[in-house]
Design a protein around this nucleic acid. Sequence first.
DNA 1: CCGCTATTGATACTCGGTCTCAATAGTACA
DNA 2: TGTACTATTGAGACCGAGTATCAATAGCGG
Lengths: 144, 144
Amino acid sequence: MDAAHVLESLRDVGLRITGPRREVVEAICAREMPFSADEVYDELRAAGSSTGRATVFRTLDLLVGLRLLGRVHRPDGSHGYVLREPGHRHHLVCSTCGTVVEFQGCNVAALADELADRTQFRIEGHWLEFFGVCADCQSRDAAD
Amino acid sequence: MDAAHVLESLRDVGLRITGPRREVVEAICAREMPFSADEVYDELRAAGSSTGRATVFRTLDLLVGLRLLGRVHRPDGSHGYVLREPGHRHHLVCSTCGTVVEFQGCNVAALADELADRTQFRIEGHWLEFFGVCADCQSRDAAD
DNA sequence: CCGCTATTGATACTCGGTCTCAATAGTACA
DNA sequence: TGTACTATTGAGACCGAGTATCAATAGCGG
């Protein structure tokens, strides 16, 4: 994804475009795989940036709020961040290497309606995620 | 759920039935709502037990492993434990009061197959959870 | 009842994330 | 271009959840 575009989105909501935010956004736009906040922080520090750890967390929170970033849960309870294409997306996560594939088109709306009926909940969202082993890790496993 | 039955399941897998384990299991069987490990620990301590914090975590882990206990993710990333009826279940969580409703019959198998086809992942599991506001919290909100 | 070994409690520690607060730097406006 | 207002920042203390270590204890099979 394009860092400039992400920064635009920040400005659109009335947030300031600052040096540290730019650095964080550029760092995460360069990533494919899900990452942790500390990975981003360490990378920036290694590159000589003086951006603080709190700022990295704050910036990631902002992006999650803007739905530009999503959180991925792992079965073990840990989680990472991933860039999201706009729209309603879900993730398929490789439990071996962590690769994430996004997909659209979950057919859970009918289920949500039925649940709302039955439980009288006002349903406001859902979380759907698949776990498995990606093709690469499967062949790597087979090779061992 | 019945504490004795849970303890049986532990024995069935070759684990010992110890005093601390019995206490933890009894404490969680008495609960309806999702709870954290520390809530259980504090409750035991308040009741005069000498069970350690680590043991509470270890016992909960065992039960998660046996699928007698499930983890519930909240949208904010925090999570709690809930007792599970046996079988494949999912949760509907009230974001206001934390009440959890279990449900069965997610229709995601077709989606899983399609994803497996398209991505060449070997899909091994999924996580589906709905968030919303339960009937009680809705009327409480309306009253304010 | 004995002995083996799983389990335990205490404690120190890690990891991810938040809070506070004085210092700094975007931005709107003159 | 300068100024003032206020959002944002970095440092560092802190927090909650969970894990690792290790010597002491206690189930359980015989």
